[in-house]
Every structure is written in structure tokens, then in C-alpha cells.
């Protein structure tokens, strides 16, 4: 029996065409694999819980499959998915009203982490703690700054694409990005992990970091 043919569609346009007129299941599988991390992380930033983010991400892809044949390509697939994800996440938030009454320490509760194979249990634990701290730190930023930072820094999107997603001018996004980066750096250098971050600074910077101009 021949091995199943691997489908590698280079562009989103090819993927959409394959979904509409070709092998739908293969196109759908590639579509999800291409955007699953993106959709999941957006949902997680809004919902703050792994299970909720999973549910939301599944819902997003099912809605996308339902409407993909009508997708006009006026924006990129990623932008379109971002909008669906935000709508789904906000709808779930409205239904559950969970984060409204939660203190920030509970907005991103500690969850059981998938175990990384190459790390010792102590390292895994330390990273879990740092990740929880970092997510809480992100949640203290104003929403536009947080979204701009994550989409630019972690997702590597262009300002043009982020502008389409958030409906903010490119100048405004650059300002938001810089402000977010400044605040995060200041928090890391002055928070519970300050020692960790100062240790890596060049000597002449670490001495003056307390009175940092950030």
C-alpha cells in the first residue's frame, strides 16, 4: 500500500484552493497545523485557562471550516482567524464571567505542565513558575500593548498585519510595542526574577540598572 502522500501547501492561497476544490481533509489538517499555536495562544491570553483555550481554538477552526469557502481573501488567513478567535473568546468570557472577579494571581492559575523531555524536574518546575509569572506580568499591560507585543514579538507579525487585526494605526502600534517592551524589561529587572536577569547584563549596565531609565 502506498504511503499517504504528504501535503505541503506553500501558501495560504493554495491551502484555500485545496480546501475548496481538492482534498478537503488534507487541506483542513494542514490549515489547523499551520495556525494551531497562533489561535491557541490568542485564546489563552484572553481566557487564561488551558481547557478554555482548547475549547475556543477548536470552535474557531470549526467555524473557519464552515466559512472558508466564502473567505474573500481581503485580509490574510491569520488576520481572519485572529478576529474569529477574539470573538469566540469574548463570547466565552461573557458566558462564564470568570476573569472579571478574579485577582490577577488567579487569572493565570498554575496548571499541570506538559513535561519537557530534556529538562530535569527542578528545571521544569522553575520554568513553570517563570511562565506563570510572565503571563501574569503580561496581563498587567493594557490590552492593546499586550496584544501588540505578543503578536509582534512572539508571533513575528508585521505591523501591517497587526494593524488589520487590531484596527490601530501603524504609528500607534509602534508606540504601543515600545511601551510594552519598556514595561516588561523594567518589571523583569525589578521583579522577583531581577537577579536572574541582571546577572546576564554587561557589568557597566548591571551596576546602573537600579536607577534604570526604563
Amino acid at each position: 500500500m502506498p504511503a499517504p502522500q504528504a501535503l505541503s501547501l506553500a501558501s495560504d492561497e493554495e491551502l484555500i484552493e485545496e480546501f475548496r476544490n481538492g482534498d478537503r481533509e488534507r487541506a483542513a489538517a494542514q490549515f489547523v497545523r499551520r495556525y494551531q499555536r497562533f489561535v491557541y495562544s490568542v485564546a489563552y491570553r484572553y481566557l487564561g485557562r488551558h481547557e478554555d483555550a482548547q475549547d475556543a481554538a477548536q470552535e474557531v477552526f470549526l467555524r473557519a471550516f464552515e466559512h472558508l469557502h466564502r473567505f474573500q481573501q481581503r485580509s490574510t488567513l491569520r488576520t481572519w482567524l485572529y478576529r474569529i478567535t477574539v470573538r469566540v473568546a469574548l463570547s466565552m468570557l461573557r458566558q462564564r464571567r470568570r476573569l472579571q472577579w478574579m485577582p490577577l494571581s488567579q487569572a493565570f492559575p498554575e496548571e499541570e505542565e506538559p513535561v519537557a523531555q530534556t529538562l530535569t524536574p527542578e528545571q521544569v518546575h522553575e520554568r513553570q513558575e517563570f511562565e506563570q509569572y510572565f503571563l501574569r506580568l503580561l496581563s498587567t499591560l493594557p490590552e492593546k500593548q499586550r496584544e501588540t507585543f505578543v503578536l509582534r514579538y512572539f508571533e513575528g507579525l508585521s505591523y501591517e498585519e497587526i494593524s488589520q487585526m487590531l484596527g490601530t494605526s501603524i504609528g500607534g502600534l509602534k508606540a504601543n510595542y515600545f511601551l510594552a517592551v519598556r514595561k516588561i524589561a523594567a518589571a523583569l529587572l525589578n521583579g522577583p526574577y531581577a537577579e536572574e536577569f541582571r546577572r546576564r547584563l554587561p557589568q557597566h549596565r548591571s551596576n546602573g540598572a537600579e536607577r534604570t531609565d526604563i
Binding site: 494551531q36 499555536r37 489561535v39 495562544s41 482548547q54 481554538a57 506538559p114 511562565e131 512572539f154
Partner: peptide, 8 residues
């Protein structure tokens, strides 16, 4: 963001 990658 590593765990997000793993979880998704």
C-alpha cells in the same frame, strides 16, 4: 511561551 506550543 513554550508550554503554549506544547499544549496546542
Amino acid at each position: 511561551m513554550r508550554s503554549l506550543e506544547q499544549r496546542s
